[in-house]
Simulated scan of single mutants.
Amino acid sequence: MSGTLYGLGVGPGDPELLTLKAHRLIRSAGVIAYPAPDTGESFARAIVAEYMPDGATEIAIVIPMRSERFPAQEVYDSAATEIAQALEAGQDVVVLCEGDPFFYGSFMYLFSRLSDRFPTEIVPGVSSLGAVTAAASQPLIAREEVLTVLPATLEESELERHLADANAAAIMKLGRHFGKTRAVLDRLGMTERARFVSHASLPNQNVCPLSEAPETAPYFSMIIVPGKDAHV
């Protein structure tokens, strides 16, 4: 009998935001996989490090963190092969996912490669969007307003088109696209009600009006534009 694959959301960073189910599965895991940069430590692993059992086998899915393109499909093909070997041997495999596995989560690439061959369970986690609105103490949408979630990696014209039609918006994956995003929001007259949040739920969390945000933004940051009915 094969093992079960768990796509496990570990939340935005604060270990206390782990679900009880996530905590239980990590404590009993024999094999734990997680995304990791090619330099530095894995953020997903760091969130749960104190709960990982001694002797657990670790599979680091090394993803280069640089602007130029890299063979992403090969990275996930290789990781899926290693995880499949453990599953075929009857071992359960817990894959740690920052935030929620299916909200811009890289676990979807392993899911597409493995879920038709092995029992798979998704364990939802606190998403970055929930953490950011909580950190900002800011309701995002109300009544019949519609929320638009956008990656800042879109072309500037596409970003502007979507935002022009939005009641309320959350813009993710800022990093080197921060300046472009700010310029678009300025042109659309949305800066005044926009909020900037970085490292939500962590000790170095930063929350401020977008007009007072720093010149650069880390990847783990977001801009929220509350709907007019929800703005406080």
Results as ranks from 00 to 15, higher is better:
M1S: 13
G3P: 01
T4I: 15
Y6I: 09
Y6T: 06
G7K: 02
L8V: 13
V10Y: 00
L17Q: 03
L18C: 04
T19S: 15
T19Q: 06
A22R: 07
H23S: 12
H23F: 14
L25V: 12
L25C: 11
R27F: 04
R27N: 10
S28H: 11
A29I: 07
A29G: 06
G30F: 02
Y34Q: 10
T39C: 00
E41L: 12
E41Q: 13
R45D: 00
R45S: 05
D54M: 09
A56M: 08
I59T: 04
A60G: 04
V62S: 00
V62K: 01
P64Y: 07
M65T: 03
E68I: 08
R69S: 11
Y76R: 03
T81L: 13
A84F: 11
Q85V: 15
L87R: 00
E88A: 14
A89I: 05
G90V: 12
Q91G: 02
V94A: 05
V95C: 07
E98T: 13
G99N: 04
F102S: 08
F102K: 09
Y104Q: 09
Y104G: 06
G105R: 07
S106K: 02
Y109N: 04
L114D: 02
S115H: 14
D116C: 10
P119S: 13
P119Q: 14
T120R: 04
I122F: 05
S127W: 04
S128K: 03
G130S: 14
A131S: 11
T133R: 01
A135R: 05
P139A: 12
P139W: 09
P139S: 11
R143C: 10
E145V: 13
A152T: 06
E155K: 12
E155S: 03
E156C: 09
E158A: 15
E158Q: 14
L159S: 03
H162E: 15
L163H: 04
D165L: 15
D165G: 02
D165R: 15
K173G: 06
L174M: 12
F178Q: 02
K180N: 04
T181C: 07
R182A: 03
L185I: 09
G189V: 11
F196P: 00
V197Q: 04
S198G: 04
A200W: 02
S201M: 11
Q205T: 09
A213I: 13
T216V: 14
T216S: 12
T216C: 02
Y219G: 05
S221Y: 09
M222H: 06
I224L: 15
V225R: 00
V225Q: 00
P226C: 02
G227I: 10
G227P: 03
K228T: 10
A230E: 03
